[in-house]
């Protein structure tokens, strides 16, 4: 990773994993994959409404980043938030119930797919306005510094965000004030149907960090272990020096932007899609684990059965969960002031 303005040596062991951790990472990614596949099914059946953006293909990014965080750190993200919510430890039940618009959802059925929140895990939301959450995440970094803590916030965004004013304004202040924020650009190559090259004047978008005097780097987003290592360095810098980092994670979305667009054929070719799918993040980790003798077909199948059962349980739970009570329509507009 490109390093700037910092001489503190990062621990070379940052992000290192043992076999048990690799199994957990694999399980988390597999859970996200099976969860999203069932979401597509639920959407087709009308169980999930509105907009729904799947994370399939990008699992190594959220999984690797979030696996490096402490419980008291924060996560804020975009509307493509199911995978990160699961990776952060929100139960599949609570996420699925939210997607089904039920009262046991992680936002009581008020937020839906784009607005998953969970105070217990410091998951500060999926946000629906492209770029809008980047200043908010920066404000969390400000609050950490204000209180003198050593937490960090992981602020996820898609690559199209870097063209918004909000991104520029927020990163300028983070660089200026040295806030403990790790900005993660999940570069999946397309902002909806517009390729990065058709939207950004520069294509190595992590280099935008230069404008904010910010340490920056790029990492293979299909390799969860590489993502962990890059995030480890960024977290170290944030905790020990209160320095922000701009980390570009190069990945690819295997599905359409949302549920309504063709997976390929309009803005990208089938051949391109298939080429990227060769580097499925689950297979990349699995292959690594196979060389270590940590997984084989039998154990993989057992793991798959386990996560499929968890997703089925989440589905059943969501379906059984009551719809929000009519009176909840009027709740949570304002909070009663106690002071």
């Amino acid at each position: 990773m490109a390093r700037k303005k910092t001489d503190a040596p990062a621990d070379p062991g940052l992000g290192a994993t043992d076999a048990a951790q690799r199994r957990d990472l694999l399980r988390s990614m597999l859970l996200q994959r099976r969860f999203e596949e069932r979401c597509a099914e639920a959407y087709a059946l009308g169980r999930i409404g509105g907009f729904c953006h799947l994370y399939i293909g990008q699992e190594a990014c959220g999984t690797g980043i979030i696996s490096m965080l402490r419980p008291d750190d924060y996560v804020i993200t975009t509307y493509r938030d199911h995978g990160q919510a699961l990776a952060r430890g929100i139960s599949a039940r609570a996420v699925m119930a939210e997607l089904f618009g039920r009262s046991d959802g992680c936002a009581r059925g008020k937020g839906g797919s784009m607005h998953l929140f969970d105070r217990n895990t410091n998951f500060l939301g999926g946000h629906g306005i492209v770029g809008g959450h980047v200043p908010i995440g920066t404000g969390v970094g400000f609050a950490i510094k204000y209180r003198g803590g050593d937490q960090v916030i992981a602020c996820f965004m898609g690559e199209s965000v870097v063209n918004t004013g909000a991104f520029h304004e927020a990163l300028n202040m983070a660089g200026l004030w040295k806030l403990p924020v790790v900005y993660i650009i999940e570069n999946n190559r397309y902002g909806m149907g517009t390729a990065l090259e058709r939207a950004s004047a520069i294509h190595d978008i992590y280099q935008r960090g230069a404008a904010y005097d910010m340490p920056r780097g790029v990492v293979d987003g299909q390799d969860v272990l590489a993502v962990r290592k890059a995030m480890g360095e960024a977290i170290h810098r944030a905790r020990t020096e209160s320095m922000p980092t701009l980390l570009e994670v190069r990945t690819y979305r295997f599905m359409g932007h949302s549920m309504s667009d063709a997976v390929s054929g309009t803005y990208r070719t089938k051949a391109e899609l298939e080429e990227y799918m060769q580097r499925d993040p689950i297979n990349v980790l699995r292959a690594h684990m196979e060389t270590q003798g940590e997984i084989d077909d039998t154990r993989m199948a057992a793991l798959d059965d386990e996560v499929k059962a968890e997703v089925q349980d989440a589905w059943d739970f969501a379906e059984a969960s009551p719809e929000p009570a009519p009176e909840s329509l009027w709740e949570d507009v304002l909070v009663e002031t106690t002071t």
Partner: peptide
């Protein structure tokens, strides 16, 4: 003092408020 960046510092405020300031 902030730079001239209304969208940015309004958002800083929202984020800081979310976590208790």
């Amino acid at each position: 003092d902030t730079p001239i960046t209304e969208l940015g510092f309004a958002g800083i405020g929202v984020g800081a408020a979310m976590v208790g300031l």
